[in-house]
Amino acid sequence: MTVEARLWEALTEVEDPEIPISVVHMGLIVAISYDAGVVDLKLTFTAMGCPAMDFIQDDIRERLLREPDVERVDIEVVWNPVWTRKMIREEARGRMRELGIVA
């Protein structure tokens, strides 16, 4: 399993504090890249006014820093692609299958 795949899987443990579904299955994780201890993560939200934005970023950072080879997590909030309901579960599943993780 690549480091990226492992990070994706780790984030299935992080839930939106308002909704009992992981940020991965919710389709909020747009991209993850890893290089020499540094994680670059692109994150989107269901709504621009999402009240849990700070909590979600804190929880993601906290979870990824628990991985032994992660020293720093840089999160960029992106609005492209636009989040839609289609990204819940189905697309996240496809994405994880590509990475070799069974979701």
């Binding site: 504090p17 308002e18 909704i19 009992p20 009240p51 849990a52 909590f55």
Partner: peptide, 13 residues
């Protein structure tokens, strides 16, 4: 239940 949990977390944080 779910939403009050968020309020508590907001307050406590």
């Amino acid at each position: 239940d779910k939403e009050e949990t968020f309020h508590l977390r907001h307050g406590r944080t």
